[in-house]
């Protein structure tokens, strides 16, 4: 038999999570010049000591890592050497005239109308800058004259930075243990863990296998919504993606009845006051959000110190 998780989950939809990050990428000299030069409608290529010309320009040879001896201007015409179609876009390899490599780019034609060996020429898109997509693609041009590689006497400064964004979406499965835990949070407003093997103390979040012994965990147990701080820090800086106003306390809290930590926040009036009042060992209680619970950790709005 093959392995499979033994317990069965409460039927829950997936948990949506998003990672959405801005970047500032440095293309390096070759790609930096190429991307700067598209506004002049020039295709910059690299020429290596062997005489090989590679377009678009590369800082390092794809064959052996060698660095080019010069940047040159490649012609805007060439021959189609391979093609496919993905999501309706035809993508092909183009061998520009006088070049020794294939340039992967879009082909502006229907798949049925193209064939290996056809002449093509670049079509520019004036609305695009600082991107390889300033070349909209290559169109079929049977009569395009054969171009030649030319020296590049003057060239733009390489772009140092181009903005980029990456957005990743996830639909995470809850699984049997998180499924029940979040269901309990939503339905009953309580934190349920599972007992460590041979112990009455709960692991929270719950899991099938104990981390330390790798033995099977025990029965379910409700933990309190009060607990003790194990570690904490006072957040006083703003970072990308933050949802709370600084200063506040980031706390690793062990709920009563559990042996593992949960992460949450405690609101404070001032940093100096919080240093004294909130520390490892400080007792805290959950403050639940008003209104309907969603079955998430954020159903607890924050923790607050139990005075006295």
């Amino acid at each position: 038999m093959f392995s499979a998780p033994d317990s069965y989950p409460i039927d829950l939809p997936t948990f949506h999570s998003e990672i959405n990050l801005p970047y500032t990428l440095t293309p390096g000299r070759a790609a930096g010049i190429f991307l700067a030069e598209v506004k002049n409608r020039r295709i910059v290529a690299s020429r290596f000591a062997s005489g090989q010309v590679v377009a678009p320009a590369q800082d390092f040879s794809s064959t052996n890592g060698e660095e080019p001896e010069a940047f040159v201007e490649a012609p805007q015409t060439g021959v189609l050497t391979a093609f496919t179609r993905v999501d309706g876009h035809v993508i092909g390899f183009i061998r520009l005239d006088g070049c020794d490599n294939d340039f992967a780019h879009r082909i502006l034609a229907e798949l049925d109308d193209i064939a290996i060996g056809q002449r093509v020429e670049a079509e520019w898109d004036d609305s695009v800058e600082q991107s390889v997509l300033a070349i909209k693609g290559f169109r079929i041009a049977p009569d395009a004259p054969v171009g030649t590689v030319k020296p590049l006497e003057t060239m733009e400064e390489p772009l140092g930075v181009i903005p980029y964004a990456m957005k990743l979406d996830y639909e995470h499965a809850y699984g049997p243990y998180y499924g029940r835990m979040f269901d309990e949070i939503r339905e009953n407003g309580r934190f349920m863990g599972v007992r460590s093997p041979g112990s009455d103390i709960a692991l929270l979040p719950p899991r099938e296998i104990d981390d330390v012994t790798h033995g099977r965990t025990g029965t379910w147990k409700a933990c309190a919504d009060t607990g003790t701080i194990r570690g904490c820090s006072i957040i006083n800086m703003e970072v990308y993606g933050q949802t709370r106003k600084v200063p506040y306390v980031y706390a690793e809290i062990v709920l009563d009845g559990a042996s593992t930590r949960m992460i949450h926040v405690i609101e404070i009036d001032s940093l100096e006051e919080a240093k004294e009042r909130i520390k490892p060992g400080t007792r805290v209680r959950a403050v639940w959000t008003q209104g309907e619970r969603q079955g998430r950790v954020s159903d607890i709005e924050r923790f607050e110190v139990i005075e006295g």
Binding site: S17, P205, I234, A251, V297
Partner: peptide, 18 residues
């Protein structure tokens, strides 16, 4: 963990300080 704590994370500095 995206389910458990990410929304309160402050990089690794929040943890390291704690």
């Amino acid at each position: 963990d995206p389910f458990w704590g990410r929304e309160f994370a402050v990089g690794i500095m929040g943890f390291s300080a704690a």
